[in-house]
């Protein structure tokens, strides 16, 4: 197992380097540089050049890359020209919202998917199973932004049960109980929208895993010993099938990111996804590249975490 983890860690490092190079190239391709954001009409072109020289923007690319990376490591992501503030500070304002939204949607996903998957797998080919399978079939074909729009339209506008935009009701003081409740309340509908779509893969995984395990010899043996049906399921089948699911969330991060971008856009929810879309519309490129980098690092580390957890839970994966 240690061998697997070390080997997996060794792959992660070049992945991060590759991501940083890609983002760096993207940043170089974008119009403008770190100074564009600071431009003050009174500064002359010569002064600007001097400033460029001082900041090392005329250096060869590899030195610039090295400077950029060492800045990253120290948490310096550059300046946002739209907000006239450090990108790091700007992002940390938004990051909590996105984490809250992701947490809500992950919790909903597990609350919904695990019971449905178990029912669907245990009573496979029953009418109930057909309903669940039908739902997951539809869910697979439904783009998340359409689903989120429909959710917003029904529960936000037509029924008025949930707020239709923002992450907190205006006028609440940060730190109060009402503030936190309002935050959670605002995250519920978008989180549920992501969850109802993302449950389908977990449901399908659980179902096929349980249906598979049911026919294995050790289950037949357990039955033959006279174990009750509930005992067979609780002790033998679910334990084997549910543990790996705990590890999936790391892999889900990539799809969660796309999900939050769409859903934050639909619900005007001020998280990192919306910040990304706003920044790219307004050509605030230092923010854009920083976000790509952060999201990318999150998916790489998420996949790493999942692989490691899974290698602990499921010995089969270590063999490959």
């Amino acid at each position: 197992m240690w061998k697997f983890i070390i080997r997996r860690l060794l792959i992660t490092f070049p992945q991060l380097v590759f991501l940083s190079v890609l983002v760096f190239i993207m940043a170089q391709m974008m119009p403008g540089d770190a100074l564009t954001g600071l431009i003050d009409p009174t500064i002359t072109a010569e002064a600007l050049d001097l400033q460029r020289e001082r900041l090392g923007l005329n250096n060869p690319w590899y030195i610039q890359y090295a400077d950029w990376v060492s800045g990253l490591v120290q948490g310096d992501l550059g300046q946002s020209f739209r907000f006239k503030m450090d990108v790091t500070a700007l992002i940390s304002e938004r990051v909590m919202n996105t984490i809250l939204l992701s947490a809500v949607s992950l919790i909903f996903t597990y609350i919904i998917a695990i019971p449905l998957g178990i029912v669907s797998g245990r009573y496979n080919d029953s009418p109930l199973d057909s309903v669940i399978t039908g739902y997951s079939y539809l869910g697979f074909a439904t783009p998340i932004f359409i689903f989120a729009l429909v959710m917003l339209w029904i529960f936000g506008f037509q029924l008025g049960w949930f707020p239709t935009s923002g992450s907190v009701a205006p006028g609440l003081e940060s730190g109060t109980m009402e503030y936190y409740i309002s935050k959670l309340y605002h995250a519920l509908l978008p989180g549920l929208s992501i969850a109802l779509i993302s449950v389908v893969s977990t449901i399908q995984y659980l179902r096929s895993e349980i249906v598979d395990t049911k026919q294995k010899d050790f289950i037949v043996t357990a039955r033959a010993k006279g174990a009750s049906e509930n005992r067979v399921y609780n002790k033998h089948i679910f334990r084997n099938s549910i543990l790996p699911i705990a590890a999936f969330f790391g892999w889900e991060i990539t799809s969660l990111i796309s999900g939050t971008v769409f859903v934050e856009s639909v619900f005007s929810y001020p998280g990192m996804g919306l910040l990304f879309l706003e920044s790219i519309m307004q050509r605030d490129f230092s923010v854009v590249t920083s976000l790509v980098l952060l999201f990318g690092a999150a998916s790489i580390l998420g996949a790493l975490l999942s692989d490691i957890i899974l290698s602990i839970v499921d010995p089969r994966i270590r063999i490959k």
Binding site: I11, P14, Q15, F18, L19, L22, M26, M29, M30, T254, I257, S258, V261, F276, L277, I280, V288, L291, V292, F295, G296, A298, S299, I300, A303
Partner: peptide, 22 residues
């Protein structure tokens, strides 16, 4: 396959958006 592994973990939606806007 290593190249594919690198591509698979990219936040491709964001990167497509960046390229489209550029």
């Amino acid at each position: 396959m290593r190249i594919i592994d690198f591509f698979m973990v990219l936040p491709f939606l964001l990167i497509i958006i960046v390229f489209v806007s550029m």
